[in-house]
Design a binder for these strands. Structure first.
Length: 110
DNA sequence: CCCGTGACTTCCG
DNA sequence: ACGGAAGCCACGG
């Protein structure tokens, strides 16, 4: 059987898929929702694993400051920003504008 | 089993 | 207010 740790990854993937279009969330928010607020890094690690799963909009997941911390992991150098803007999200200098307004909190919604 | 790494977050100076 | 350092958990070698 799978260990709980691996389930953590699966949860991250599930939550990421539940992110509405035009909305973004933070690694910490997902970690808190999963019950491990201190595992924010693990969420990012999980996103890295989700990189092979196109069903997971990793570009909608940013750090607590709304900064596209993971954009460097996407193809090219501005793909993540292009995806966000394509969904109606305004991005400036690798930073999401109106982050507080488009912020989607899984723990609050779910 | 131990060590290193990482798409984060928070605290201290 | 800004910058640097530590803490944290999980995965891979």
């Amino acid at each position: 059987m799978e260990s709980k740790s691996q389930d953590f990854f699966q949860k991250v993937f599930t939550v990421a898929r539940q992110i509405p279009i035009g909305r973004v969330t933070s690694y910490g928010a997902i970690a808190v929702y999963l019950g491990s607020a201190k595992s924010a890094r693990i969420v990012g690690y999980a996103m890295n694993a989700s990189h092979g799963d196109l069903t997971i909009p990793a570009h909608r997941v940013v750090n607590r400051k709304g900064l596209l911390s993971g954009k460097h992991h996407f193809e090219g150098s501005n793909l993540m920003q292009q995806l966000l803007e394509s969904e109606g999200i305004v991005v400036k200098d690798n930073q999401v504008q109106d982050f507080d307004k488009i912020f989607w909190d899984p723990c609050k919604v779910l």
